[in-house]
Design a protein around this nucleic acid. Structure first.
Ligand SMILES: NC(=O)c1ccc[n+]([C@@H]2O[C@H](COP(=O)([O-])OP(=O)(O)OC[C@H]3O[C@@H](n4cnc5c(N)ncnc54)[C@H](O)[C@@H]3O)[C@@H](O)[C@H]2O)c1
Ligand SMILES: NC(=O)c1ccc[n+]([C@@H]2O[C@H](COP(=O)([O-])OP(=O)(O)OC[C@H]3O[C@@H](n4cnc5c(N)ncnc54)[C@H](O)[C@@H]3O)[C@@H](O)[C@H]2O)c1
Lengths: 213, 213
DNA sequence: GCAAAGGTGTGAAATTTTCCACAATTCATT
DNA sequence: AATGAATTGTGGAAAATTTCACACCTTTGC
């Protein structure tokens, strides 16, 4: 249990999504084989990924969809409420604040921040926009855990510093830049420009595509 | 040279971004040490990543910023024009079509598609919206290489199939689902909900954070 | 022109991650 | 109750990736 591959965590998220879809279809049982096929990995991989956290199936029988789903939610910490805030209410920040699927799990958008006087105080998608100076207090009062960083690249590090100082625990970084934070804060990049460039590379290097059964 | 780690490609994108920033600051020379620090990896890693593709530095002296930048652009295929299309002109599709930084490299948005009669024929951010039935012809006529998939999860596989049938070479998949495409088409997921769930996991498991010098 | 300092490129070791074979267990059928 | 088919959990092999040490080159200072 000392160390778990990052890729395993990404795959657990995928398995959970598949289980949710199976549950919505009323399917009660599944197998590593079925999960593997839908997640496009090997069945060995599915079982190994789960084995990092315990035993969730029955030999010979497979997995029970609701049970495994509940376990994965617990493992990923999705069985508890998370309060999030958006920093940077430009185009992307607004699009995200409008996005309904948040509450699917227990994420709730609790506050929006910007440093532009023109938007501070306005209401966007039902949320009042705070100035950056209110960040420490609002984060504390509303118990905000996670920040969505949707400011321009040039402002990203400063805004991240402010989030860290306010005591935030995790950051979803949409800005195309590597930000520097203390060890105890977890940053997940969500970088579509980087993805676009990787697509470019793999198109001109078709030989380097990973194999798949 | 037979196989290059996926992570290496992601890091090359980061190095390129750093080099661009250094060039904008008028800095002419750099080192694996400096790139490593800004990219938050080890200097060994930087040199090994570059070594997959050739020798770009001078021993004892380091790297010349414009030279290495040019080489990385070439390696990543960013020294040529790419034509892209957006499939799904909802909130996210519109936000992206508005985004100016595309043309920074040679990506140009050539067409937008949707299957909703209410938006087909409209102009959004200066682009006419086509129906999905026009996809094969438009992709061919405009030489579209890459598709941004911004349709709802439930429509993602069908839309991806249509893109593949039209002869697209790469897909940036913004929908929170694993899509199935033939080997020769490269898909990059851009999945902020997955990122959010990973943040959740790492917040409740602070011991599992990767080390860094 | 020599020595010292700085810094790349790379083969090999170490580590991490994936792959696999198979023992163990369950379920269905007779 | 016994047999056969199905499917998990896991130790260890294999493969992939990262880390490292160091030979080798360049520049600077004296
Ligand atoms: N628009 C897109 O489609 C898109 C897609 C992916 C990623 N991104 C990235 O997301 C980020 C935001 O993009 P955008 O298009 O929404 O930009 P935008 O310019 O529309 O919005 C940025 C917002 O951040 C605010 N801001 C600037 N500095 C700030 C600071 N120091 N503190 C707080 N707020 C600050 C601005 O007032 C503005 O409201 C950029 O880094 C961009 O690269 C954008
Ligand atoms: N809105 C966000 O902030 C956000 C952020 C990240 C990811 N996403 C993901 O991006 C996708 C789109 O999100 P959105 O919020 O823009 O949704 P949306 O409902 O606003 O837009 C979806 C668009 O796709 C079109 N569409 C539906 N089926 C189609 C089909 N078969 N072919 C072509 N077009 C079709 C619809 O007409 C609509 O215009 C979703 O998968 C969502 O999960 C959204």
């Amino acid at each position: 249990m000392s160390t778990i591959p990052t890729a395993t965590i990404s795959r657990l998220v995928t398995y959970l999504r598949i289980l949710t879809s199976l549950e919505n279809q009323g399917i009660k049982n599944t197998s590593s084989e079925q999960l593997a096929e839908e997640a496009q990995v090997s069945a060995f991989q599915v079982r190994k990924d789960l084995a990092y956290f315990g035993r969730f199936g029955t030999r010979g029988a497979g997995y029970t969809v609701p049970t495994l789903r509940r376990e994965l939610r617990r493992i990923l910490g999705l069985n508890r409420p998370w309060n999030v805030a958006i920093i940077g209410m430009g185009r992307l920040g607004q699009a995200i604040s409008d996005y309904p699927h948040f509450e699917q799990y227990d994420f709730s958008l609790k506050a929006c921040f910007d440093n532009n006087a023109k938007v501070i105080g306005q209401t966007m998608s039902g949320h009042q926009v705070y100035g950056m100076d209110a960040l420490p207090q609002v984060v504390k009062e509303k118990g905000i855990d996670i920040g969505f960083l949707t400011v321009p690249q040039a402002a990203a590090q400063a805004a991240a510093d402010a989030l860290v100082a306010a005591g935030i625990k995790g950051i979803l970084n949409f800005a195309p830049v590597v930000i520097n934070v203390p060890r105890e804060v977890h940053v997940e990049p969500v970088d579509f420009l980087a993805g676009l460039k990787r697509v470019s590379f793999y198109i001109i290097n078709p030989g380097l595509k990973e194999e798949l059964a």
